[in-house]
Design a protein around this nucleic acid. Structure first.
Length: 870
RNA sequence: GCCGGGAUGGCGGAAUUGGUAGACGCGCUGGACUCAAAAUCCAGUAUUCGCAAGGAUGUGGGGGUUCGAUUCCCCCUCCCGGCACCA
């Protein structure tokens, strides 16, 4: 046995041992209960960052813990390999996206392996391979045929200089990130998944997800946003004696009598019509179309509008209402038009004040007086009654809602309607590095799905990316084809799919590695659903909602078997979810003369701080000149603030990296990266090793029975708490428990007795999921067979609390006076309340404060404290 | 702007869910060992008044409920995540 801790050596040995045993190959046929433990797969951006280490260590701790608990554990890994950064890297370094991606994967796989993760690598999935995306294309064609995928036009960010579509991330302050050109919205045809058809099920099934954080379910509920409202039609003269109607949706039909104008989106047909002979309006509409499509930008923009000069008729009171174009009305939500009730909607109120439009109160709330000059926030509660609303006066929210909806229905100018905030999922991307959409455009047959025997539509891997336009649209050999229906000349679709599509079903593919007959085979029925999913909180909505949607799609298409629709376990993909808090780090940048930002890695920057530790400035180490301090944000490639864990692994070993990461904070809490303290984690592992050496070489003993008893009491008390912490995934306090156990053991004189072996066996098993290498090595060196365990810690059971060690005769109670701690009392465990009260009142600190007076009341919290109120 | 979350010593964090605030670790201070340093070990370490005993204050800010509040309620500030083409 090595006399000192040598992580490199023991980690290599342990990893080799696991490889030889094929220790983490998951059996598809085991009798043990299955535990499918899945961490969100990484985008292969180049190298691991701390967020990855955190994510995969958490997953590994859970996987190894459940193995010790007797589960048949499957923990796979793969690569979310399509995506925008590969194209950016291609432009920056002149290397094809495929080559860049595959070499990143090779490097990152080695990094992951060096962390000692208990992964079944035989199930590895890489989404950019034809074997994988072939089945995505197959599913696409099925969904297209069943109408769950359809085509419509939608807005994108258009860069008029590079003639290309930009991602929201590539639009900075309204300009294209490369060209600097003002971005504009452009309507283009795209394919959409009809996720809204599943809106109700996606909403109601959230109630079944008891293993999900409430926070995530709340966010998803709000995102889906089911609302009960009313469609209302406002008639208008469409010329040549015809009447048309403008449809709006509102959740507050009870305020209809307070509506004084309507507002439409810039893209609304009525706006287009009005602009035809109004150049000022046409200019305004053009202005609205400038800028990107991101909702955060739209919602924080200054509210602007312009009168179209058109009027619509109020459906109940017959008033003429002006039609405005407003930049805050979104074409993509509802009908692209709203009725405005400035008296009771804050946004409408501001707009009406700005453009001097009529504000008319139609709701009154008791004890609140109305003002049309300053906004008052008492409308949202729905606790008022109608006023100035003719026959509806005096009605409260629901009766008014029903009466107005009824009257509108009678006039055929409206009806109650349930509406979702959730929009259909547009998946067309005018990009190269993605899964080709398997559609062929034929002049006579229309959009024809690629037949099964022609799948996969393989993405050519040898391309040059220029950043202008879509590469596939320029590749004749890719898009020229014949129509599968009529055999005529046809053109292949050159858009690729949103990369969220690949990550929406990979968890199922892991359950059927190598399957060539479908997305999955019968093995998926054994493994699905995923028992534990682990990933960053930033995925709380989009990825997790899409994956839930896809699971339902696959169920309904029969991917999990013809009976899947009636099997409850196929309703949801992830039974338990752990949302890891993000690892965040400061960002630093410099700007060039055009204002373009260049992001600098925190590792290359020195920060100066004031006495309170607040940063006062930063300089780039390379040139000693100042850099600008940005926000503290999640580690990302685009902000270049990712910290590479390799340095820590090289210097201290994987166990230290894992231990420190688990000790730094509870998994679901955000973690501001700081490596001060890594040394402490390493120091602890050295102490563990040294203690192992001491036990191995020990002779005889000098520990008294009393010390034995106290040590066992301490160890089992700590273990009990650690078990509870493990089950609530609070790994930082499990690490702290391991430290306490070592502290207790380390205080002992002799080390040969059985209780010392017992304590060490508990310590090593407690640490095994977190620091598997050192646990493996020490377990092998010390003989635990006489305690009844096998000689490989992988097969050892999770430690059990010995309740008999917890029995105590005396307990310590706190003495409080008026809720303030004044002393303590050591009493026999079963002392009755009368006696306790006597003892408390007789306590010298209580006597002193009573000063001869009488206590008003004595509160006894059993086993805890006595509070004397005076 | 909207939705979700967070704030506790110099730092990361703990607190049996309303009952000893600061476990465990980092850092710092002092000591032991050493020619010296590193490593290791021992002791101390919320702030403040006090020689001490002991007292007062203290969980982002303001209010409230309670014998007792980091924990429950109301209001506010700041930070982080998401907002549908970053993944």
């Amino acid at each position: 046995m090595q006399q000192s801790y040598n992580p490199k050596e023991i980690e290599n040995a342990a990893q080799q041992h696991w490889d030889q045993r094929q220790a983490f190959r998951a059996s598809d046929t085991s009798d043990k209960p299955k535990y499918y433990c899945l961490s969100m797969f990484p985008y292969p951006s180049g190298k691991l960052h701390m967020g990855h280490v955190r994510n995969y260590t958490i997953g590994d701790v859970l996987a190894r813990y459940h193995r010790m608990k007797g589960f048949n554990v499957m923990q796979p890994m793969g690569w979310d390999a399509f995506g925008l950064p590969a194209e950016n890297a291609a432009m920056a370094n002149n290397v094809p996206p495929a080559k860049w991606t595959y070499s990143n994967i090779d490097y990152m796989r080695k990094q992951l392996q060096s962390l000692g993760l208990a992964i079944d690598w035989s199930r590895e999935v890489t989404t950019c391979t034809p074997e994988y995306y072939r089945w995505e294309q197959w599913l696409f064609t099925r969904l297209f045929e069943s109408g769950l995928i359809y085509k419509k036009t939608s807005s994108v960010n258009w860069d008029p200089v590079d003639n290309t579509v930009l991602a929201n991330e590539q639009v900075i302050d309204g300009r294209g990130w490369r060209s600097g050109a003002l971005v504009e919205k452009r309507e283009i045809p795209m394919y959409f998944f009809r996720i809204t058809q599943y809106a109700d099920e996606l909403l109601s099934d959230l109630d079944k997800l008891d293993g999900w954080p409430e926070q995530v379910k709340t966010m998803q509920r709000n995102w889906i946003g089911k609302s009960y409202g009313c469609d209302i039609e406002f008639p208008y003269d469409a010329g040549i004696g015809k009447t048309a109607t403008l449809k709006v949706y509102t959740t507050r039909p009870d305020t209809l009598m307070g509506a004084t104008y309507v507002a439409v989106a810039a893209e609304h047909p009525l706006a287009t019509q009005a602009a035809a002979d109004n150049s000022a309006l046409a200019d305004f509409i053009a202005e609205c179309k400038r800028g990107g499509t991101a909702e955060a930008v739209m919602a924080t923009m200054e509210k602007k509008g312009m009168n179209t000069g058109l009027f619509v008729i109020h459906p109940l009171n017959g008033e003429r209402m002006p039609v405005w174009v407003a930049n805050y009305v979104l074409m993509g939500y509802g009908e692209g038009a709203v009725m405005a009730v400035p008296a009771h909607d804050e946004r409408d109120f501001e707009f009406a004040r700005k453009y001097k439009l009529t504000i008319r109160q139609s709701i009154a709330v008791k004890d609140k007086s109305f003002s049309n000059t300053a906004w008052q926030d008492w409308y949202a509660n729905k606790d008022g009654v109608c006023v100035n609303s003719a026959k509806y006066d005096g009605l409260s929210f629901q009766p008014a809602f029903d009466a107005i909806a009824g009257d509108l229905a009678a006039k055929k100018l409206g009806e109650k309607k349930v509406q979702f905030r959730l929009r259909d999922w547009g998946i067309s991307r005018q990009r190269y590095w993605g899964c080709p959409i398997p559609i062929i455009h034929c002049a006579s047959c229309g959009d024809v799905p690629v037949p099964d025997e022609q799948l996969p539509v393989v993405l050519p891997e040898d391309v040059t990316i220029t950043g202008a336009g879509s590469p596939l649209a320029k590749m004749r050999e890719f898009y020229e084809c014949v129509c599968p229906k009529c055999g005529g000349k046809a053109k292949r679709e050159t858009d690729t799919m949103d990369t969220f599509v690949e990550s929406s079903w990979y968890y199922a593919r892991y359950a059927s590695p190598g399957c060539t007959t479908g997305l999955v085979d019968e093995r998926a029925r054994h493994w699905l659903p995923v028992d534990q999913y682990i990933g960053g909180i930033e995925h709380a909505i989009l990825h997790l909602l899409y994956a839930r949607f896809f699971n339902k799609l696959m169920r309904d298409v029969g991917v999990f078997g013809p009976d899947a629709a009636s099997v409850k376990t196929f309703d949801e993909p992830f039974t338990n979810l752990l949302t890891q808090g993000m690892v965040i780090a400061p960002t630093f940048y410099r700007e060039d003369t055009s204002g373009k930002k260049f992001w600098l890695n925190p590792a290359d920057v020195d920060v100066t701080a004031d006495a309170k530790g607040r940063p006062t400035g930063a300089t780039l180490r390379a040139d000693g000149k100042p850099v600008i301090i940005g926000g503290t944000e999640k580690m990302s490639k685009s902000k270049n603030n990712g910290v590479d864990p390799q340095g820590i692994i090289d210097q201290y070993g994987a166990d230290t990296a894992r231990l420190f990461m688990m000790f730094a904070a509870p998994p679901d809490q955000q973690l501001e990266w700081n490596d001060a303290g890594v040394e402490g984690a390493s120091r602890f592992l050295k102490r563990v090793w040294n203690f192992g050496v001491r036990v191995k070489n020990a002779e005889g003993s000098a520990n008294t029975p009393d010390l034995q008893k106290r040590t066992r009491l301490e160890i089992h008390t700590v273990l009990k708490q650690a078990n509870a912490d493990m089950d609530k995934h609070q790994f930082n306090t499990v690490v702290s428990a391991a430290m306490k156990i070592l502290n207790a053991l380390d205080r002992l004189a002799g080390t040969k007795e059985e209780f010392v072996h017992e304590g060490l066996s508990i310590l090593l098993r407690l640490l095994a999921p977190i620091t598997p290498h050192i646990s493996q090595a020490l377990w092998k060196e010390l003989d635990f067979k006489k305690l009844g365990y096998s000689d490989d810690i992988l097969d050892a059971p999770w430690p059990q609390v010995d309740e008999s060690a917890l029995v105590q005769d005396e307990i310590e109670l706190m003495i409080q006076v008026n809720g303030k701690l004044r002393g303590n009392l050591l009493v026999a465990k079963d002392t009755d309340k009368v006696k306790l009260e006597q003892l408390a009142l007789a306590h010298e600190a209580v006597q002193k404060l009573l000063a001869g007076g009488v206590a008003k009341k004595v509160i006894i919290v059993p086993g805890r404290l006595i509070n004397v109120v005076i």
